[in-house]
Amino acid sequence: MEEFRFIDLETNNAFTNMAIDEAIMLSMKEGNSPPTLRLYRWKPSAVSIGTFQSMLDEVDVEFCKTNGIDTIRRITGGGAVFHDYEGEVTYSIIMPKGHRLAPPDILESYRLLCSSIVRALDRLGITAEFKPINDVNVGEKKISGNAMTRRHSCVLQHGTTLLDLDVTLMFSILKVPQEKISDKMISDAKERVTSIRDLLGREVSIDELRDVLKLGFSEALNINLVPGTLSPYEQRLASQLAREKYVSEDWNFSR
């Protein structure tokens, strides 16, 4: 069975998390890194915006500063995501262009990689399905959002799977005029988004989600996950990217 390096669930701040994803791509482009799956959490909790979004339009930056929530722009498109330290696990999967798991058709690519999330949720007893373009839904409700980029001769997809969801906090972070945060809006959001704990009605732990994600990727993609760590080269690249790019206002407020 094909091998992927598996970097097991770790916790970093937003800048390091996004820098590691890009560092792996850069190193892989040079032939120095194997196909890789990472699982990670964000501490402090953070909001990431899509690469084409405007930070000031989408995020209440002042609220985030006051409440110790980091704000960051991703290299991938898509929408704003709240990465609650206690409420989600993020994955990223990175492989060279032309890899069996990176078909040229982008929708097909999303479908294939998102099947890992569907399988993971199935392991928890939740029936979910891929919802094009880039979501995994349970019924009509989104439980996982995903985003892909193709650059540095690689395909990278990262995504979140919701363990828990605080809709009121989410609306405080995202830029919605305060007067519009009505009970109706909150109940509408609860009709569109769900979480594992909502669905199962029990205290599913982060570790349990980590276990099924690992199984989901391995089974759905038919890959053998070999425990590994970042190489010293990747670590150096990641530190540099975190410091020079991801922490900078030039990047985060570029649009």
């Binding site: 979004q53 405007s54 898509g78 650059r151």
Partner: peptide
Amino acid sequence: ITILGDFFLHPEEVI
């Protein structure tokens, strides 16, 4: 003009 949103564009720099 600035074009913003939650769509995808590959490669992103083309925006």
